[in-house]
Design a binder for these strands. Structure first.
Lengths: 159, 159
DNA sequence: TTCGTTAATGAAAGTGACTTTCATTATCGA
DNA sequence: TCGATAATGAAAGTCACTTTCATTAACGAA
């Protein structure tokens, strides 16, 4: 899985006439291994632990590359910094609900919601190309004073 | 209307022990008169035309104040700068659809969509406090090569 | 293998959108 | 009219990136 993704990245680089470097490999490896919705800062720190010689700008540049090759999806929630998550070719589109207390991020997908958005856009004369939907609230764990584990359960399918 | 809003602002200031100043009045006046979804840059330019002595920081500070007193709503679309729109006490909640070509912003509200989001949040164990929804696409005018007027038709009620 | 061309890297400087600092000015209740 | 306190403008500071530039590394050709 990880190996497969790293190969996809290398191929994408070759296809663009770019070079495979140790830094790019280290960064991509960490990025795919970490998963989740990581900020550049978090990824930079994680990469440093593997290879302390990697520069800050290179992490930014590589993430941009991963995004352009479709291997990473960039998200911008309300905390003012970009977050990245690994995305596969035929990964399922999804939106996010975020706990305002503990920061937990849950992914969900709703066909119903998507259809509704399409209807609205059409009604207003738009051809929809993309959307951004984020729900903010408080999760059960926080409401009940439980220590909440940072979820990684994948995309929740909802009605 | 405008007069009424300016009074509301002055009262909000007084209630917080803040002072009424010419700058705040000028900025609020321009803000309410302009309407729409204006960036700070745009508002700053418009204020300058009325009163060239008003500083940049004061526009930011006053907008923040207007936001805190509930008289302005802050929006952050994908262009990386905050935009503000006047909001009344019992103004209708709404979302936005934005043309990626001409930048036109149309406001809409869908009970159905709101209800659906509530259902999803509840299903995932969240108590919803707010959401952010932006649809991006191309408007009819742009698709047909027509010069598109920057809409200001208010909130479109949709299913 | 060795070159040589061209891309990649790290450190540091630069950006853009704000936000804060600070010396000066204005407000407003007594 | 005062005086305490808040507000202002200019400029410096922040934060999250992005770009520059001198140096280093990759890789296709010889």
């Amino acid at each position: 899985m990880l190996r497969e993704r790293l190969r996809a990245f290398e191929e994408a680089l070759k296809a663009r006439g770019l070079k495979a470097t140790a830094q790019r490999d280290d960064i991509a490896r960490v990025f795919f291994a970490e998963g989740g919705h990581r900020s550049v800062e978090e990824l930079y720190a994680a990469v440093k632990r593997v290879n302390p010689r990697v520069g800050y700008a290179t992490v930014y540049r590589t993430l941009k590359l991963l995004k352009e090759t479709g291997l990473a999806a960039e998200r911008r929630f309300d905390d003012g910094q970009a977050r990245y998550e690994p995305s596969e070719e035929r990964a399922q589109h999804h939106d996010h609900i975020i706990c305002e207390r503990c920061g937990k991020i849950v992914e969900f997908n709703s066909e119903e919601l998507e259809a509704q958005q399409q209807r609205i856009a059409r009604f207003l004369g738009f051809v929809l190309s993309r959307h951004r939907l984020e729900l903010y609230g408080i999760c059960t764990d926080c409401r009940e004073g439980r220590p909440s584990k940072r979820g990684g359960k994948g995309v929740q399918q909802v009605v």
